[in-house]
């Protein structure tokens, strides 16, 4: 029983990471109908930036606070320079560019930082597990950070004028321009925001799985699964989906398929969702009378 509870707690902790990356994916998907295959590699690269800062003597949270805006700028720049000109290109072209970005980030990271696994510090200390040994300090801390991030993003989109304009630009770019919303800027902001969320997810997961250029491949796959499970058109659904996938992954790994087939579980979830319920669990089918 204890083991079971621990698996669930771990599942929630890693689920938070998947939920963050899933949210980043959904934000870009909603605005552009593109799946950003490079989302994970961008997060990995951001994590290396943080590590470089920390190794240069910058305190952890200062490094954290520098990495997030730097990642924002990188994300926004990619949208402006690479993605915007291809906005109307066919699927193959956008997939090609995303894969190109993925390969570029991956190998540039390998080039600069080498392919060896590197430990990444946790800001929450090693210490003894808390609450009767069920949850490690890092699990608790990273889950808290993830929840704060997710809540702030939600509040931003829900309550601010800019957040509303970004949603509007994603849903209906033509009408948005007509009311004066600069749609292209909103897309760049969205990319920046997605990259920042990814960066935080990367920094939170790196202490657990160690940092190397291929660190995010698995995370990205679980995030795909989470986003699809929750509904790729529904940010809240994607977040819930991310948490569910985290729990399934941990329980499945511990009791059903074993750790060797964890990634296959993600593939399985993706295929099942897409064939059985492509809109996902919480995907909205819009009722419209025109």
């Amino acid at each position: 029983m204890d083991g079971f509870i621990h698996q669930i707690v771990s599942g929630i902790a890693s689920g938070g990471i998947y939920a963050s990356v899933a949210l980043a994916l959904v934000m870009i998907y909603q605005a552009t109908h593109h799946v950003n295959f490079a989302q994970g590699e961008m997060a990995m690269f951001s994590t290396y930036i943080a590590l470089t800062l920390i190794q240069a003597g910058v305190p952890y949270w200062a490094a954290f606070c520098i990495t997030v805006p730097v990642s924002f700028v990188i994300g926004a720049l990619i949208q402006r320079v690479v993605m915007e000109p291809l906005a109307k290109a066919p699927v193959l072209a956008s997939v090609g560019v995303f894969i190109g970005l993925l390969l570029t980030f991956n190998s540039v990271a390998g080039w600069i930082f080498t392919y060896t696994l590197k430990p990444f510090p946790s800001p929450f200390g090693e210490g003894k597990p808390l609450f009767g040994g069920f949850v490690s300090r890092h699990e608790l801390g990273s889950t808290a950070v993830t929840l704060v991030v997710l809540l702030s993003i939600w509040a931003f989109f829900r309550f601010t004028k800019l957040g509303l304009a970004m949603r509007a630009a994603a849903y209906n770019p033509v009408s948005s321009r007509l009311v004066g919303v600069p749609v292209n800027k909103m897309l760049a902001l969205g990319w920046g925001l997605a990259a920042s969320i990814g960066a935080i997810a990367g920094m939170m997961v790196a202490p657990v799985i160690f940092l190397d250029p291929n660190m995010m491949a698995g995370v990205l796959l679980y995030a795909f699964a989470g986003a699809l499970l929750g509904g790729i058109t529904n940010p809240l659904g994607a977040v819930v989906g991310g948490f569910i996938v985290g729990i399934i992954e941990n329980l499945g790994g511990a009791y059903v398929v074993g750790t060797e087939l964890k990634l296959t579980t993600a593939l399985f979830i993706i295929v099942v969702v897409l064939t059985v319920k492509p809109a996902g669990l919480f995907g909205k089918t819009l009722v419209s009378r025109v």
Binding site: L164, A168, Y171, N172, V174, L178
Partner: peptide, 11 residues
């Protein structure tokens, strides 16, 4: 006000 009214359906 464009043709088709330009409603933000999801909002």
């Amino acid at each position: 006000v464009p043709d088709g009214r330009g409603t933000f359906m999801e909002l």
